[in-house]
């Protein structure tokens, strides 16, 4: 009786996710092993062409670039977010400081991308200032390169790193830092030897929250980046809508999915006893900023 009641409650969700999440995912898996149709779509014929096409140097190069950009952006984000989270956690008005971090992210994702175009562009804010300081100088194009992409990605995902880091640092017992100092550690040593090992779960959550969406980024490289900053997300979209090679788009999607899922499970399951899933940090706090995808 109880068993059936619990199952009935969850039935709508199970069905919805089966039909609109799991089934589409399975179709993609299937498509990746089929032959591409002449005018888009697929031919019902088993083939490994799509996976062979992925070995194409131009796609491999984009994959490598995607990985590189994601790793650099994630590391930068965490390096910036760490002192921020610490300063919020030690502040006496945490609420206001958190609020200030979250507010910019209630603004639409595309509006924020557009704002960066307005800042970095040829006719943008920075060039405005440059012309104002040195009239007649030619504009400098800051947009359409990898560094602009990294900058905007860091901007987009900072709160995702700050919030989980804050909530783990907030649970950290700061007298441990006093104790470390008392026992002879320098301030730097007290951070590296006592603080960091004790907020590992927060670091992991922050890393996943930034790395995973950046790895699948589509809009930022499309609008901010140039030809040299195409990422896997852009290739998938192109194969799907322009080249109309659905098996290839599916195969790349599968690869992205598998690699992120494996990464998440590896990292999250490494210390299963001490942390509750990857969301050891308060999930609702992390999601109050979930605006900025």
């Amino acid at each position: 009786m109880k068993q059936r009641a619990g199952f009935l409650y969850t039935l709508p969700q199970i069905l919805w996710l089966l039909v609109f999440f799991l089934a589409p995912l399975c179709i993609i898996i299937a498509y990746s092993f089929l032959k591409k149709g002449l005018y888009g779509g697929v031919e019902p014929q088993f083939s490994l062409e799509a996976y062979q096409a992925m070995a194409n140097p131009s796609i491999l190069m984009v994959a490598w670039r995607t990985l590189r950009i994601s790793v650099i952006a994630t590391i930068l984000t965490i390096l910036i977010a760490l002192p921020c989270g610490y300063s919020i956690a030690r502040s006496s008005n945490q609420a206001i400081r958190l609020f200030l971090v979250i507010v910019p992210f209630w603004t639409n994702f595309l509006v924020r991308i557009y704002a960066w175009i307005a800042i970095l562009g040829n006719e943008g804010f920075i060039n405005d200032i440059i012309r104002w300081v040195a009239p007649g100088s030619a504009g400098i194009q800051f947009l359409y390169n990898q560094w602009a992409v990294v900058l905007v990605l860091v901007y987009m995902y900072l709160p995702y790193a700050i919030l989980p880091l804050f909530s783990t640092i907030d649970k950290f017992d700061f007298t441990l830092l006093d104790a470390a100092r008392d026992l002879g550690a320098t301030r730097f040593q007290s951070y590296t030897r006592v603080l960091l090992p004790n907020i590992r779960s927060g670091l992991v959550t922050a890393g996943l929250f930034t790395f995973v969406p950046i790895f699948g980024a589509y809009a930022v490289p499309l609008l901010i980046g140039g030809k040299d900053s195409y990422m896997l997300g852009n290739i998938i979209a192109d194969q799907l809508t322009k080249t109309r090679n659905w098996p290839l788009a599916s195969a790349i999607s599968m690869t992205v999915t598998l690699s992120t899922t494996i990464l998440v499970f590896l990292v999250a399951l490494r210390k299963p006893k001490e942390q509750k899933w990857v969301f050891d940090a308060d999930p609702s706090a992390a999601m109050s900023a979930a605006g900025g995808r």
């Binding site: 969406p213 699948g216 799907l240």
Partner: peptide
């Protein structure tokens, strides 16, 4: 990644 959800 969102793009995978969208594509599928």
């Amino acid at each position: 990644p969102e793009i995978v959800v969208g594509v599928s």
